[in-house]
């Protein structure tokens, strides 16, 4: 079965985020970029499904500027078979990303689409669910286990307070949570091989999708910074302050 994985290029999670002085956004100039951590987990899951003989082909798709090809190549080095780059320099919001992915799904007809549950930049947690709704597929969100059995996939989901398992008809959409797997690192020979794997390039217009955003960002600010408080001498003083000053216990 064919598996489609969507990956996003975002700021590296180790980089300290700085808001631009003019409050128009976050400063991304000369900042290290990487594959969104949840998307790495999505790629790893697809590769494991292929290693188990469940998946036959892994297609990786990314939407974004030319440099997003780096993340596609990373996924190819990790074991994906071919890439699709939907190239645009415009901001693509979740609904429009889902529409672009829907167009790719209609062309590729995968049995399973795996995405990260959210990207660590916009933190929306929407695209997978929107894609599932637009394509009429079931969804296994925040997955910690994915088991394909015949024409169904059982997905164990991380929910508030525990775990829940659902059975979805295939084709289906899965979004990954942290515990699903631990992504591997790409080996140097595989990085070299990935350079020769096929990568298709297309535009949102080629897919017939209008990507005009519905939400406008009026301003972006740094969060109210916390002031360092006081040092207490011992535990007794700490408990006294918590009870009588902060009144939180």
């Amino acid at each position: 079965m064919k598996v489609l994985v969507a990956v996003k290029r975002v700021i590296d999670y180790n980089v300290k985020v700085r808001v631009k002085p003019d409050n128009t956004g976050v400063d991304l100039a000369n900042v290290k970029m990487a594959m969104n951590p949840f998307c790495e987990i999505a790629v790893e899951e697809a590769v494991r499904l292929k290693e188990k003989g469940v998946a036959s082909e892994i297609v990786v798709v990314s939407i974004g500027p030319k440099a997003s090809q780096e993340q596609i190549r990373t996924a190819l080095a990790l074991g994906a078979d071919r890439g699709i780059h939907v190239e645009t320099d415009e901001e693509v919001q979740s609904l429009e990303a889902a529409k672009l992915l829907k167009a790719v799904v209609e062309k590729e007809e995968p049995k399973l689409v795996i995405l990260g549950k959210q990207s660590i930049d916009s933190d929306n947690n929407q695209t997978g669910q929107m894609l599932a709704a637009l394509t009429g597929m079931g969804q296994g969100t925040f997955a910690s286990e994915v088991v394909v059995e015949g024409d169904k996939v059982n997905v164990t989901r991380e929910i508030d307070g525990g775990l829940m398992t659902v059975a979805l008809n295939l084709p289906a959409v899965v979004t990954t949570d942290l515990r699903l797997n631990e992504p591997r690192y790409a080996s140097l020979p595989n990085i070299m091989k990935a350079k020769k794997k096929p990568l298709d390039n297309m535009s949102p217009a080629d897919l017939g999708v209008d990507i005009a955003p519905r939400l406008s960002t009026l301003k972006v600010e740094a969060p109210a910074s916390r002031q360092a408080g006081v040092k207490v001498a011992d535990v007794a003083e700490l408990v006294d302050k918590l009870k009588n000053e902060a009144k939180v216990i």
Binding site: I11, V17, V19, D121, L215, T217, L218, K219
Partner: peptide, 12 residues
């Protein structure tokens, strides 16, 4: 919040 609360966006 965006960027895990490292930035706060006002959106319309």
């Amino acid at each position: 919040p965006i960027y895990a609360g490292n930035a706060i966006a006002t959106v319309k």
